[in-house]
Amino acid sequence: MNRVSDEIIITENLVYSYSSEDQEIEMQALAGVNLSIARGEFVAIIGRNGSGKSTLAKHFNALFLPTSGTVRINGMDTQDPRNLWRIRQTVGMVFQNPDNQIVSTTVEEDVAFGPENLGVPPDEIRRRVNLALEWVGMSEYMRHAPHLLSGGQKQRVAIAGVLAMRPKCIVLDEPTAMLDPSGRREVLDTVKRLNKEEGITVVLITHFMDEAALGDRVVVIDQGKIVMDDVPRKIFSQVELIRQLHLDVPQVTRLAHELNKSGVTIPEDALTVEELADALSGSYRESAVASYGE
């Protein structure tokens, strides 16, 4: 029993199929997904275009319902219409295009949109809006018009809009795909901080491998199935397999892999510049000692 309450998202044999419009073929976007995500975890989901990762994400707050199998959010079955609004309040979604998820003409009104829908009393909404904007560092833009903000700022407003609903989990569906490097940093720093400091569970869907490496855990989806599920180090050190899945690994990981193939024995699971630099300067000292000894 205890185990169940530790998990915020559980899918069991989740299948989602749809029939393409003109042809009568049944397509399976998800072909039996078993996944559980624990409270407070930071999980990255990666997979090529059309792998089903976005479809999976939309099951987490009942935007899509399973064709068969079950999805349970905080113990609530998404198939049961009575749970709908509680589920959507528990799991907030942030989407790819920042422009297409901001409803209102000022930042504060947009952040208020969610709690207003939940029927929260006005004073309480005000408090939540202020706090949410503070969390994402956008307080000073409270009265700005959203279309004048940068991409990274818009996404932070979108995150604040979700936070104001007091969710336990945030699912971000390629939130940085349309941003420049500094916009990406803004969003990722915010997400990391919310996870570490506020204990909010984060599910991050991304095409950027360096972003996925930030997770406690990386889930790789291909053809509607989970094909890998492990800590980032273990995932990315399998360079060949990752490449076969049409994905990529961070440059330093690939370099470590290549060096190993050429006989330099260093750990293959380096994910950052510092880690590989540590490993290599270690080898360098050894080789210097070795040549000194000759």
């Binding site: 609004w85 979604m93 989407f95 998820q101 409803v103 009104e109 029927g119 909404i125």
Partner: peptide, 27 residues
């Protein structure tokens, strides 16, 4: 149309269900 589609989904995800039972921050 694509934007409208995405916006509708984003609104639904934020529990929008029409004016019934809705409060406003600014009274």
């Amino acid at each position: 149309f694509r934007r409208a589609d995405e916006l509708a989904m984003a609104m639904e995800a934020r529990c929008y269900r029409g004016g019934e039972g809705r409060t406003r921050m600014k009274q």
